[in-house]
Amino acid sequence: MNMPTLTDSLQFLFAGLTNGAIYALIALGFCVVHNTMGIVNFTQVDLVSLGGMFLYSALFLFGLPMPLALAGAVTAAAVTGMAVERVGIRPSRSDNHLVLIFLTIGLSVILRGIMKLAWGKNRMAVPPLTADEPIRLFGATILPQILWIFLLTAGAVLLLIWIFRRTTLGLCMRAVASNADAAAVVGIDGGRIRMISFAIAGGMGGLAGALVTPITTLSYDVGVLLGLKGFAAAILGGFGSFVGAVAGGVLLGVLESLAAAGLSSAYKDVIAFGLLLLVLFIRPAGLFGSAKR
């Protein structure tokens, strides 16, 4: 095997960072819901696909200009997230986490069925946010879309942190996360907070989907592997920690890309998940997780 040149390495690093940013966005969606409800929300996976689908429809069905279409897609994904919580999860009378997790898996099957029905099973192409002129940077070429991904991901992460640290809503969310009963006693509506956390998760997933589908392709199940890697990133960083989710996402993306370049691209999923298992075996609560579950 040839040693990759510096330019090649840089190219792979950018590819890894791009995927990492997407994983981080999805991971944050997983974390927000986990923090308010204590469950893994597997519908996150489909909210990623939906982000791409909504962008596609906004552009080609409604003929909206790109910025409006992107905003519309993210909003629609957030609303879908809220609907999932309100219709699918809140009526459940169980507080058994196992049951709730399987419930989200069932809801995820329904969402994929609806997507298959509404958009068909074919692969579709979504245009990037701006023109496709590649930019040269230190000898490596990068698409403008990748810069958009970095920019918007960073923006979304900062917005999320600002909401959590600086607003009353964030305070309420943290209150519900730390003790739902105590939060209810001081008059915080837990149901509403959970619905908002699903909306945030939907928005994050939708944004990730809308940003990444121009580089990959769009189909009703595109979010499954992406979403599971987002879940892996969240676990890698320590489930529930925002810093951990971002670090886990970037780490997973970069390691995966470098492993694909240096070892084998066919086995990059094996390497990614193998590494994840290894980390979990050494640190059972993830890199940034605390010992308590």
Binding site: L228, F231, I235, F273, G274, L276, L277, F281
Partner: peptide, 23 residues
Amino acid sequence: PTLRLSGHYLAMATLGFNIVCYT
């Protein structure tokens, strides 16, 4: 090593093992 994990971490680890085998 896997069964030392619990909850979501266990879900992820078993899921990861499945993806590795499938690939």
